[in-house]
Amino acid sequence: LTVHVGNVTYHFDNPEQAEEWAKRMAKKYQGQIHVKDGQFRIE
């Protein structure tokens, strides 16, 4: 699973971990989480 934050990409084996990280990053950067094809993108 991949989480994109700006132009930085993080890889996770565990979906719960990826989702948790995406939520934390979205809160930190006050962005929206977009989920597409098993990838999380924070914008």
Rank of each mutant, 00 (worst) to 15 (best):
G38Q: 03
E16Y: 11
A26H: 03
P15Y: 15
G31I: 13
H34V: 15
D37S: 01
R24H: 08
L1T: 14
K36L: 12
A18I: 04
D13C: 15
R24M: 13
F12K: 00
A26I: 04
V3N: 00
T2D: 06
W21L: 02
V8H: 12
H11W: 12
T2H: 09
I42S: 04
V8D: 05
F12L: 01
R41P: 05
N7K: 11
P15T: 10
E43Q: 06
Q32F: 09
G31R: 04
F12R: 00
N14W: 06
I42G: 05
F40D: 04
Q17I: 09
K36E: 13
V8S: 07
I33N: 03
P15N: 07
T2N: 05
H34C: 14
I42T: 04
G38S: 03
V8A: 10
E20F: 10
Q39G: 12
D13P: 08
V5W: 13
V5Q: 01
I33H: 03
Y29R: 02
A22C: 04
K36C: 15
D37Y: 02
R24I: 13
I33V: 10
I42V: 10
K28I: 10
V8W: 13
K23Y: 11
Q17P: 01
E16G: 08
R24A: 11
I42M: 01
V5S: 02
R24N: 04
G6W: 09
K23L: 11
F40N: 05
H11P: 01
A18Q: 04
Q39E: 14
K23N: 07
V5A: 06
T9L: 10
H4R: 13
V8I: 12
R41G: 06
N14H: 10
Q32W: 05
V8C: 15
G6E: 04
R24P: 00
R24E: 08
N7M: 10
H34Y: 13
M25R: 01
G6H: 12
E19F: 15
E16T: 11
K23E: 05
F12T: 00
Q39M: 07
Y10N: 00
Q30T: 05
Y10I: 04
E20M: 12
G31T: 09
V35P: 01
Y29P: 00
G31L: 15
H4P: 00
A18P: 00
T2I: 10
K36A: 09
T9Q: 06
V3S: 01
A22H: 02
N14P: 00
I33R: 02
A22T: 02
M25Y: 08
K36V: 15
H4E: 06
G31C: 15
G31Y: 07
E20S: 11
Y29D: 01
K28L: 13
V3M: 02
N7H: 12
V5D: 02
Q17E: 13
H11M: 08
A18W: 05
A26D: 01
R41L: 14
Y29C: 15
D37Q: 02
V35S: 05
G38M: 03
I42P: 05
A26K: 02
Q30G: 15
R41A: 07
